[in-house]
């Protein structure tokens, strides 16, 4: 085999592996839409997404497939997790990059890596046996709640938010910091007024990406949120149980009869897919605008 043909073969091989990844994504999309889209059109996107009642196995009358409470549940829990994880993660990232001595940096980075490695079902189990009773006893309600879901998701989102924001903070030119300190600013003032604003688009991207991940998370959330497909009442009650879009699919997939019910679950998948895709697109847009602004 000549060197040239070998080179060609390697290129072809690499091309094939790249194409495979894309093809898999496309196939999943095609399948998802093939299974779910007809139902979505038949039942009406509007009635499906904004319908208040999810009752696929109606004892009497027509079954109803409204996923609005679950969209609210997913967004609610994801947003709640960010409210908890962003301040904590950002604080940790600032400490990590700007303040921590080398030994503490090493320790924190190890800790973050470990946190990423914990399977979500283990976290969910931890939430089930520790967090849910804790909330039930200290705050009331069932314990299975938006709050429990948000806390568990926050723990899962934390390492990603820390590492992406830490990268963004590290990328701020050292010269900004020096200029600020040379003007007599304290370290904290420099962090707050120069470093964080300069890193803000990177941090925003981290937050949006974190939101996308949180919306897509299933197992851990399923175990602690109670899974009732009803809007919280009143709407701001974070101690109420909710069901997320992801949980909806997992819970009902094994007994959904072929036909409307099964297809409705695929349609749920489509809605989820679109939501995550939009969040990812926004996050990419934000990152791109940072590169353009960073002359």
């Amino acid at each position: 085999m000549t060197r040239q043909t070998r080179e060609r073969m390697i290129e072809a091989l690499l091309f094939a592996s790249a194409v495979t990844a894309v093809v898999i994504v496309l196939l999943i999309m095609v399948f998802l839409f093939k299974e779910g889209a007809p139902f979505l059109i038949r039942y009406g996107i509007h009635t499906f997404c904004l319908g208040m009642e999810w009752n696929p196995i109606a004892m009497d009358g027509e079954p109803s497939y409204g996923i609005f409470p679950m969209i609210v549940g997913s967004v609610y829990i994801a947003a709640g997790s960010l409210v908890l994880a962003v301040p904590l993660g950002l604080g940790c990232a600032v400490f990590l990059v700007e303040i921590a001595p080398p030994w503490a940096q090493a320790l924190i980075r190890r800790g973050i890596e470990l946190l990423v490695g914990i399977p979500s079902v283990v976290l969910g189990f931890f939430g089930l046996v520790l967090l849910v009773p804790l909330i039930r006893e200290s705050a009331g309600g069932f314990g299975f709640s938006i709050l429990a879901g948000s806390v568990i998701l926050a723990i899962m989102a934390l390492p990603h938010i820390i590492s992406i924001s830490a990268d963004a903070i590290t990328a701020v030119p050292e010269t900004y910091k020096q200029a600020s300190l040379a003007l007599g600013a304290t370290r904290w003032h420099t962090i707050r007024n120069v470093i964080l604003p300069a890193a803000r688009s990177g941090i925003a991207a981290a937050v949006i990406l974190g939101m996308g991940n949180s919306i897509g998370e299933t197992m851990a959330v399923l175990m602690v949120t109670g899974n009732t497909p009803i809007l919280p009442e009143p709407l701001y009650d974070v101690l109420d149980p909710v069901r997320t879009l992801t949980a909806n699919i997992v819970i009902e997939m094994n007994y959904a009869a072929p036909g409307d019910h099964r297809e409705a679950l695929f349609a749920t998948g489509i809605v989820l897919f679109v939501m995550v895709a939009i969040l990812n697109a926004i996050s990419h847009r934000v990152l791109k605008s940072r590169m353009e602004a960073g002359r």
Partner: peptide
């Protein structure tokens, strides 16, 4: 102090 490379804040 004025530095080697101009370093205005963004």
């Amino acid at each position: 102090m004025v530095f080697q490379k101009p370093n205005p804040f963004p």
